[in-house]
Design a protein around this nucleic acid. Sequence first.
DNA 1: GTGAAAGCGCTAACAT
DNA 2: ATGTTAGCGCTTTCAC
Lengths: 346, 346
Amino acid sequence: MASKTRRPLTLRDVSEASGVSEMTVSRVLRGREEVSPGTRERVLAAARALGYVPNKIAGGLASQRVNLVGVIVPSLSNLVFPEVLAAIADELEDTGLQPVFGISRYSAEREENVLYEMLSWRPSGIILAGLEHTDLSRAMLAKAGVPVVEIMDVDGEGIDSVVGISHRAAGRMIADAVVAAGYRRIGFLGTKMPDDHRARKRLEGLQAGLAAHGLAVLATEHYEGGSSLAKGREMTQAILAQCPDLDCLVYSNDMIGVGGLLWLMERGVDIPNEIGLVGFNGLEIRAGVQKRLASVDACRREIGRIAAQIIAGKHSALAAPQTTVGGHRIVLEPRLDPGDTLRPFV
Amino acid sequence: MASKTRRPLTLRDVSEASGVSEMTVSRVLRGREEVSPGTRERVLAAARALGYVPNKIAGGLASQRVNLVGVIVPSLSNLVFPEVLAAIADELEDTGLQPVFGISRYSAEREENVLYEMLSWRPSGIILAGLEHTDLSRAMLAKAGVPVVEIMDVDGEGIDSVVGISHRAAGRMIADAVVAAGYRRIGFLGTKMPDDHRARKRLEGLQAGLAAHGLAVLATEHYEGGSSLAKGREMTQAILAQCPDLDCLVYSNDMIGVGGLLWLMERGVDIPNEIGLVGFNGLEIRAGVQKRLASVDACRREIGRIAAQIIAGKHSALAAPQTTVGGHRIVLEPRLDPGDTLRPFV
DNA sequence: GTGAAAGCGCTAACAT
DNA sequence: ATGTTAGCGCTTTCAC
């Protein structure tokens, strides 16, 4: 039971307590094999007795290696990102690597600041959401000399590795589906956030897909701030007030989509016949409502897992590298689950 | 445009490029005032031109100070924790401190490991959920010599500072409310997770509160894994199959509570007259359903904010210290929102 | 298998 | 306002 020391313990303390050189103590504590069992035991006993916690700052400086992986996502309020983080944390579990999370709030400038902070810790890798970054961010990442994985989106140029889905393709997929299901008067409900590039690309894909069928989005409802069921209710009411004869509502995410669905069901609207609905993300919450909202899966756990594998160097190239030398480019194929809110279609 | 260097840049590079000593470069980069404007400009220009990113590992070793705050929560799937993390991140924003998140998966052993990793970076503070830790964890925290804030729960002994609510009191509050509203045949639906101590304490409080009125929980339904609307639906069906004459269902959290509410409403059950419902957490999702689930607010944003303030040393003691010397003990008072799922009561 | 010396890239403490 | 010196606590490298 070591008493309350003010000065933190050092290797030297363990060395003196065990009568073994600092160097050998260091070897034991790092789990190197080249130490005799007897010495190892004495060292471990001393370290435990003292309550020694190694100083990774000193270790990192000396070895020029740090077991940290920086991960930057736009937000934690959008359930999607905690799920990606959880997947990354799970996958990194037994690699000796530790994730460090940062939040950019959908701002490229803030992302740059967070990135700068992270790089100043010389991490072993960086994972960040999206392909849109400031020039300085790109420059820093390029010079950092560590693996960089941009996740969630593949519509654009990557810096090193890229893992995600095409949000434009997802938008087109939704367009094709609602048209195939016979809907013609389509409304869109989504975020106003100008820096949610993935939401923007989905809308672009939707519009392009509809245009290919000679159709267009007839009404749009935008909101600011976080997504919630309540927002979805209000917006659904608003878009139908503005344009009552819509026969299909495309939501930029499942949270507002389910909100809209609940509101419409309460009002006795016949879904999917009178009005069709589609969301995005494949959130679990959809399973909690009588009718399951149609949605496109964003593959977020998969994305997190693969990104972590790439950083950990244990990714068995599912796809051949196509970008930078050494960089992977993994394009996942989202699935559209028609649920119960779209008329049957091929 | 510096070319692709393999060796990372050092202060010395900036020093040479700007013709200013390393020490002064260091001062400029740390924003110390004691440098002439001219020199400052030259240094900043050189650093920018080179794309220099300081090495905090070296800096931390030299200064013996690190601007990191370790935060350990049980999970990211339970929406509550991302919210706490977001609140901490927000509050730390302009303090120069950076949060680093770890996940314990409701396991004290895993928490111990994560804590060990974190402490080895010599952070400026530690925030962790709950009061239940391994002996080694407590010993490490006590010896770390940095502020420690245990959050979310106040039912027990703290190590240093404690910020949270009493989950036992919350349970009793719920008991009093449902009894006051005239319910007598009460069922409980909650997690099986033996290490979710806060859920356990809420149940204990509920039972104690009911006992004080000569009542008891008549039926219980447990589940494993994450909470979801779908789980709430199933469990509600199950508990009513098992014990059809319950007149009140107490859910251990709002997610399963709202699931149960939706299921009951679909079946035309008259809420709150036929059956009363209460959840816990005060989740936003409640506002998205026709009837608002009664719930007790867990004060999670407030808790995150205050914990961060304590670490940052800018907490204006809302309550007098009561525990360890220097340690705060902030007990927040949760509010019960009766919503639309309990009969009116005083 | 173990130890001694050198130094990782910065900053504290003191000059000047 | 700026520079010099001496480490911070570890690991690398090389001896033994």
